[in-house]
Design a protein around this nucleic acid. Sequence first.
DNA 1: AAGATACTGTGTAAAATTTACACCCTTAAA
DNA 2: TTTAAGGGTGTAAATTTTACACAGTATCTT
Lengths: 231, 231
Amino acid sequence: METVLPTFNSVFSIDCVIFGFEAGELKILLIERNQEPFKDWLALPGYIVEQDESIDDAAERILYELTGLRDLHMQQFHTFGEVNRHPQGRVITVAYYALIRINGQKELRPVTQYARKAFWHPVNELPKLAFDHTEIFETGFNKIRRRLNYQPIAFELLPEKFTLTQLQSLYEAVLNKKLDKRNFRKKMLSYGFLKELDEKQKGVSYRAAKLYKFDRRKYAKIFNNELNLDK
Amino acid sequence: METVLPTFNSVFSIDCVIFGFEAGELKILLIERNQEPFKDWLALPGYIVEQDESIDDAAERILYELTGLRDLHMQQFHTFGEVNRHPQGRVITVAYYALIRINGQKELRPVTQYARKAFWHPVNELPKLAFDHTEIFETGFNKIRRRLNYQPIAFELLPEKFTLTQLQSLYEAVLNKKLDKRNFRKKMLSYGFLKELDEKQKGVSYRAAKLYKFDRRKYAKIFNNELNLDK
DNA sequence: AAGATACTGTGTAAAATTTACACCCTTAAA
DNA sequence: TTTAAGGGTGTAAATTTTACACAGTATCTT
């Protein structure tokens, strides 16, 4: 009886769909590849998992190496395992997503040679991507659209202090539909996990809006209660 | 510049969490392993993906080989990639789930030597399982609990013709809570995808209940409309 | 055949949530 | 001081969700 694992020329890789939000627009992070196959193509940040690292660790490392970004909360969302998805051999890829605040200060700078550069690109009008990355992106986008309804992921995309209008336009960008201003505010505030600050928006040429903060503690409390008091 | 894939001693495997429903109880399919590691342990049906098959194909094949079951609609739900989850080397496993009618006629019979037998086991009071299979099961169970609310997966577990009480007790088993009979019926029927048959339950020692069928066409129509008419 | 048993099948009112909808206010810039 | 741009607010109607109880019927028992 066989008791030893077979050796195939098979590798695991990770691909990352990283969402950001800027100027009312939803964007994702792309790289320009500097390596065959698909040299010079645009692609999702992705690379091969090392033998001695978990896939979660690999996802963090790979994103960092290709884009310079660190300490994101990445979550796996799907695994792509068609036989010929990679032209050089059998590669199964586990796709992760994360949402982050786009921040002018944080420079996007690949620390390996595999990517020539990394940059934000609006999710609408995405160019052709390497491998099956377009499909991976679509799958990921659908997932976060779903999760937006039951997880507080929107706040990861916004600056720490934000206005209700910014929050609403983020929801509109992800869900791709217009929402009613009064109803949106009523509902968001009714959850009780938004903290109104004594501060206002600055630098706008119109009446400045109040700033709010997402209160993680309150959110956790509410969420746990829901689970515990389950009828 | 490296342009060829590295060769690691890494393999992909598939593990299956197959749910069934019988006698008002939710069950999953387990095997008794006949191979090291974890020889003689109970485990989820799972095995290694071949080099030339997609992971979806592998899932079908592996389930068939270990249990004799075929033609299920399996869906991947999570990939487990901790470094030491398999004692013999680096194995990443993609976990799939499916829901099926338990049917006395369909015999569970492994067609490989890797499993000694396959059998149904209630999801409550699961024994210790091989590898990280307990965690895989828990993750899968949580997923279907969620999906029950927005996908018609319940009907895959029931016989083609079923009573509303059977449907309700399935929901109660998966969600692990009591539901109100009148409200449950009102809501289910209001969707419009249950077809009332001219037939009644047989072989019960009390008033026989009406039988219903799940109408896939109507379901699809309703579901598509929802998507298309999206405001 | 009478009674016991076990589950079927049904309606309504109250409460909660969701939806639709429009205008005055404030700030900065011109 | 006027204009431009978005800020901020309330209510009524419609819809959905919740809570709740009992008579009806088939079978089995004695």
